[in-house]
């Protein structure tokens, strides 16, 4: 993979992040690894508390410290070593190399500033242009996300949720970053607006050639816009592959469980098969494979040893004891409906 690294926008290598409080040490990321190529959309799927958002914040170097501590690991963002970067460097990077779309557009806009000033801030910060020029560019951005430029003079509370998220997207795109981290960008929107916003994000991303890290727990969104998918469990990628690999050649029991928890439109009487149990407490993770207490295929080895990666193709890999180099190819270790 070494010659491949050249066209990597982002390379996270075995990242460990902990939140240290007086009561407990919460292990948010436990050997997180992630590669995103330029222009690629990468889905990061997992339950609440799996470490998805922490991954996003780590890339921006915005993990709240205290209590967050990056214990070890390496983040390369377009040749920049994020861990070694100074705050000044990061201020430059945020917004122009990497930017973030937050989950809730209702709270991610400043309520006392008109929206065009908030977007113009990006231009003023990164391109050292004067206010008038920044506003002009802002109007172009607003039109790009489908908001009439005239509405730029309004306050966030005068926009609907979907419109606000468009503003947030315009803000994220304004510095023409190489990577956008979208942290559940559609969770706070209703379904019809979700589809609109997703489509727009996809179009803009393709048009501008931006890579995107799509953090979500909605497999529907993943199917719609992602090229690659990483399934995260307890702060670690347990299965990674292309969209087709994950959806059609599922290997990991947890990934399988995620699919089985989706309602089946063809058979409406079919019962959902939720994954038993709950996400483990990240302050007190089970030993071995953290998924073993909930796994239907649990073996003795699962509770003692962490599973190594087994590669099915160069891209698709699984971290599960069920598999070895031989049986990974044909699959069939888990039953799929």
């Amino acid at each position: 993979m070494s010659e491949d690294n050249k066209d990597l926008m982002l390379n996270i290598d075995s990242l460990y992040v902990e939140y240290r409080t007086d009561d407990a040490i919460v292990k948010a990321l436990n050997g997180m690894s992630l590669q995103i190529r330029h222009g690629e959309t990468h889905g990061l799927v997992g339950e609440t508390g799996a470490g998805k958002t922490t991954t996003g914040l780590a890339i921006m170097k915005l993990i709240p410290d205290p209590p967050g501590v990056v214990v070890s690991g390496d983040i390369q963002l377009n040749y920049l070593d994020v861990q070694k970067a100074t705050e000044k460097q990061m201020e430059h990077v945020r917004g122009s190399v990497v930017s973030m779309i937050f989950q809730d557009p209702m709270t991610s806009l400043n309520p006392v500033m008109v929206v065009e000033d908030q977007i113009a801030e990006v231009f003023e910060q990164h391109e050292k242009v004067n206010h008038a020029e920044a506003i002009k560019r802002t109007h172009e951005m607003l039109e790009l996300v489908g908001i009439p430029a005239e509405r730029g003079k309004e306050y966030p509370h005068q926009f609907s949720g979907g419109m606000k998220q468009r503003v947030v997207i315009a803000m994220a795109l304004a510095g023409s970053p190489g990577l956008i981290i979208a942290d559940e960008p559609t969770t706070a929107l209703d379904v019809t607006i979700q589809a609109q916003v997703l489509k727009m994000m996809k179009d803009l991303k393709d048009r501008l050639g931006t890579a995107m890290l799509m953090i979500t727990h909605d497999l529907g969104i993943v199917a719609e816009i992602c090229d690659k998918v990483s399934v995260v469990y307890a702060g670690r990628v347990i299965e990674h592959g292309t969209l087709e690999d994950i959806f059609d050649r599922t290997r990991h029991p947890y990934t399988e469980g995620l699919f089985n928890s989706l309602p089946n439109l063809r058979d409406r009487k079919a019962m959902l098969k939720p994954i038993k149990g709950l996400m483990p407490d990240p302050a007190n993770l089970p030993g071995g494979c953290p998924f073993h207490p909930r796994c239907n295929y649990v073996m003795d080895i699962c509770s003692t040893e962490r599973a190594p990666r087994v590669y099915r193709t160069e891209e698709h890999y699984v971290a599960c004891h069920l598999y070895n180099a031989d049986n990974i190819q044909q699959g069939g270790m888990i039953q799929r409906d």
């Binding site: 921006m60 915005l62 990061m90 201020e91 430059h92 990077v93 945020r94 917004g95 122009s96 930017s99 973030m100 937050f102 809730d104 709270t107 991610s108 806009l109 400043n110 309520p111 500033m113 801030e121 990006v122 910060q125 990164h126 947030v168 803000m171 994220a172 304004a174 510095g175």
Partner: peptide, 20 residues
């Protein structure tokens, strides 16, 4: 969150304090 969002677009501390 909008303070975090301002950080995410690279705004400096002084700017965040005064503007947001």
């Amino acid at each position: 969150e909008y303070i975090e969002a301002a950080k995410a677009i690279g705004a400096s501390n002084g700017r965040i304090l005064l503007q947001h």
